[in-house]
Design a protein around this nucleic acid. Sequence first.
DNA 1: GTCTCTGTTCAA
DNA 2: TTGAACAGAGA
Length: 353
Amino acid sequence: MVHGSVRQRDAFQQPPSSAYYHHTHARGYAAPSGPPNPYPRQPEQHPQSPPSPPAEKKPSLPSISSLLEIAGGEHTAAETAAQSPQSQHRQSSSPPLGQAQHRGAGAMQHPQPSRPEHHSLYTAAPPAGHPHRMTLPPTPPMHPEFAGDGNRSPSAASTHSAASASYYRAPLNNMEPYQQRQPTASMAPMKRDPAPSHSVSPYGTSVYAQSAYASSPTGASATSFYSPDHHSYSGLGMYAQRPLSSHYQPHGTPLPVPIPSPRTTGSNPWQHHHYISTSSQSAFPQSQDRYICSTCDKAFSRPSSLRIHSHSHTGEKPYKCPQPGCGKAFSVRSNMKRHERGCHAAIGTPITT
DNA sequence: GTCTCTGTTCAA
DNA sequence: TTGAACAGAGA
């Protein structure tokens, strides 16, 4: 069992190939993400679940298309017509789409029936390349982002303060969501020298306690983490969404991040996006890795885990082998005990402090 | 419900 | 053999 989780985590990290690993996978973890995440993990899903669960839509749409293509035909057309409207209705019901499309430009809507769009959007990745689909759907919310590299949709940008956005985005975007979760992997190298520049200073454990956890364990940590994941889904859309989610806050970093209010994209027109984000959010496990190492961005589900992890950065080894001749020290108590058992075998070991 | 401690497991 | 992370048990 344990392994399982670990493995999952690995999966995140290692397989960069599947950028599309979403937290969900991560840990059922969520991702991360929720998260390696995985992340997934189970996590909590955000309360706000927009009415548009991707799942629902997916089915309906795809089926139609496939029908059309396959059948070619007769009923298909009829059905399609019938259904498409429905799908539209749904969309309309879910503001996100409608508006998202707007952004896309009325172009999207006007020109074509909405069906393809849905597909692309909802369907994480439109498999086959249907030209039309590609064009339409996927982008609505993401348009700007995707197209541009996504990061920034004007609205999105506005949404977050430059600062917050800048940092978390950068990393995030560069790395896919899954990667974020596994900062370790991607950042593995960083771990030890993650940034020597800032790394050390931050530690002091104090950092964790104070900045990372204390300050924003709730909103910050959790969100930060996941949010990145979102990126994977829809580049920016996610940001916009968060605002919707209410607690969600965007920041990818464990830093003391002050990102509270900005997220409120209240302004957004983007809310529409949330539906996407929503879905993605729901997918993430937020509760899981709430504690993020400021040095390497690695996320932990427990503060104690983070603290121990910090030792790896600081090199601190508080646990010393009690054995007379052995001056070995360990950063993890259990490792020290193991050492005693293995090397000094025996002994009731008084256990060091 | 959360946190710490402990044991287990994986990777280097 | 050791470092590191995770999960379970207990407080």
